[in-house]
Design a binder for these strands. Sequence first.
DNA 1: TAAATAAAGGACATTTTTGTCCGATTAATG
DNA 2: CATTAATCGGACAAAAATGTCCTTTATTTA
Lengths: 144, 144
Amino acid sequence: MFSKACEYGIRAAVYIALQSLDGRRVSVNEIAEEIDSPIAFTAKILQQLSRNNIIHSVKGPTGGFEIAREDMDAVKLNMIVKAIDGDKIYVGCGLGLKECNAQKPCPLHDKFVDIRTDLSKMLKSTSLFELATGLEVGLTYLKR
Amino acid sequence: MFSKACEYGIRAAVYIALQSLDGRRVSVNEIAEEIDSPIAFTAKILQQLSRNNIIHSVKGPTGGFEIAREDMDAVKLNMIVKAIDGDKIYVGCGLGLKECNAQKPCPLHDKFVDIRTDLSKMLKSTSLFELATGLEVGLTYLKR
DNA sequence: TAAATAAAGGACATTTTTGTCCGATTAATG
DNA sequence: CATTAATCGGACAAAAATGTCCTTTATTTA
Ligand code: FES
Ligand code: FES
């Protein structure tokens, strides 16, 4: 569904949001540890998110990553997915034709579009804050 | 969503079904031409489908691939997807945890499972025959 | 101002996916 | 029985995704 990079990106963003709720800035090392991801690869992904203004980074001692409280509401999953995986899951054809096109649809088009629309709506309506709170209460997990 | 191999596999299977409705057996070369896919790679995928009894192959002159009329109804997309991509789309966690587990769910679990269930239902209920008929009538396309 | 800390970024390495090539096998036909 | 047409199967090649390492840059603090 999502690339590994995107999965790490979402997990990382949720963890940063959770810690930012406590006013804590976190380092790549801590993030990678807490979401069980490869450190250097995770660093690359965080750079992408930072460049896309999804998370905020601070260099130097006491630096790290954080997300402002308002941004946790404003940042929806679709923004993270788009920043990392691009829009292929939104415009791609389920059977691999150049692009999805209702004028010349593939045999699976109608059924595929239904699913994709649901997915898209879900991603557009799910905020980082929402995901972080489940974690905070101990209902959900970022690693096992 | 699906791998390239799986996309080619579905397109190929639908094309074979369409031609089998006319009693025509088709070669790898014809299939690759008609679905716009790499020939040798497509051959590999057809072997997989053949080994999984999803399509039938005949060697030698006048040979090729075909699907019996009854099988077009019996073969659902989920069988093709499972034969090529395995069951990762059915049991995988949306955020990349080892496996999806409602006991220790990731933050996206509930919402992800909804989508995945819809996708799974759709694949389980869509037959090759159904997809081939849309093509036959000229409503849908396997290449552009 | 020097040392230490943390992200940024580029080059490189590994693994997986996608794709190619070619000889072996099977079967139809003259 | 020889030829030919087709899939089968293994080895290989290329490309993309994933992952690592190391140097540079910015910033804090002693
Ligand atoms: S054309 Fe294939 S999904 Fe729309
Ligand atoms: S645990 Fe992540 S989707 Fe179920």
